[in-house]
């Protein structure tokens, strides 16, 4: 019974039995809490994956529109402005800031886009012609980048959650399949050991009482024999042989103790 399965190395005492019982209780509570956490995270995770799928489709459309507006620009400007723009980029106007959101104890990062005021690297771009198209193109792209940032934060949350869910599930399984069975085995072992000790104790007590009974029986027999001898001696002496009868009626002579 106690040899089945692994158990912890403890001495089979009542104290460690109590310890193991409280440990088992703790493990069960922890297991149910972690299980619930994992469920909450999984729910969130499914939500995020669905939104990622949607956002990716949306991104495809938005980028297409943005690319089209860029084509408009190159048509209006009548040349390639790429080089000029790459050279004039100095300070980022469009930046992101990260916040985090707490989902059952897990911090999910979220990006939030903001524009830094007063920075404009492209003040002179499109000064000759096509300025309006360039302006429109910038707006389109700014919207596209916002979508991208949104998608990026979803994706980051996805990666973080994926990792966390794996860790939590690992813990849940470890408690369910390793810690709880091991603690239960230990409790079984301690119980069987304690029962064994009880049986030993009982047997020992039984032996002791048997021995005592035997001793008293022997002592009784001896006393009886001594009395008989005494009575025979008295009879031989004759005379006052009737005397003990009257004494017995009064009950003054002590009975031999009965030992249970």
């Amino acid at each position: 019974m106690s040899g089945a399965g692994p158990r912890e190395a403890v001495f089979p005492t009542r104290q460690s039995l109590g310890l193991m019982k409280s440990k088992l209780k703790g493990a069960e509570i922890g297991h149910s809490l972690l299980k619930r956490k994992s469920e909450a995270l999984t729910k969130r995770f499914r939500d995020i994956t669905r939104r990622i799928d949607e956002a990716k489709q949306k991104m495809g459309r938005v980028m297409q529109i943005a690319a089209f507006s860029l084509a408009e620009v190159s048509y209006a400007v009548g040349g390639d402005i790429g080089y000029q723009i790459q050279e004039s980029a100095k300070q980022a106007r469009f930046r992101v800031r990260s916040k985090h959101e707490n989902v059952s104890g897990v911090f999910l990062p979220q990006f939030e886009s903001y524009t830094k005021e007063g920075v404009n690297d492209f003040g002179l771009t499109g000064l000759g012609k096509g300025g309006q198209q360039i302006q429109r193109c910038r707006e389109t792209y700014a919207r596209a980048v916002e979508t991208l940032v949104e998608l990026a934060s979803l994706q980051t949350a996805f990666l973080v959650l994926d990792e966390v869910i794996k860790v939590v599930n690992r813990r849940v399984n470890a408690i369910e399949h390793v810690i709880i069975p091991r603690t239960e085995n230990t409790i079984k072992y301690i119980n069987s050991e304690l029962d064994e000790l009880d049986r030993e104790e009982f047997y020992r007590l039984k032996k002791v009482s048997n021995k005592k009974q035997r001793d008293t029986a022997a002592a009784d027999a001896e006393i009886l024999a001594a009395r008989q001898r005494q009575a025979e001696k008295d009879k031989e002496n004759g005379g006052a042989a009737e005397e003990p009868d009257s004494v017995d009626v009064l009950g003054e002579q002590e009975d031999t103790d009965v030992i249970f």
Partner: peptide, 28 residues
């Protein structure tokens, strides 16, 4: 580590990079 991350980076063909730079993500 993610507190001070504030820029976007692009690896892309010329048109994509130009458009995204127009949106103002370019930083040197």
């Amino acid at each position: 580590t993610y507190k001070d991350r504030q820029f976007l980076a692009v690896i892309g063909d010329e048109d994509s990079v130009t458009g995204l730079l127009l949106a103002g993500i370019g930083h040197v």
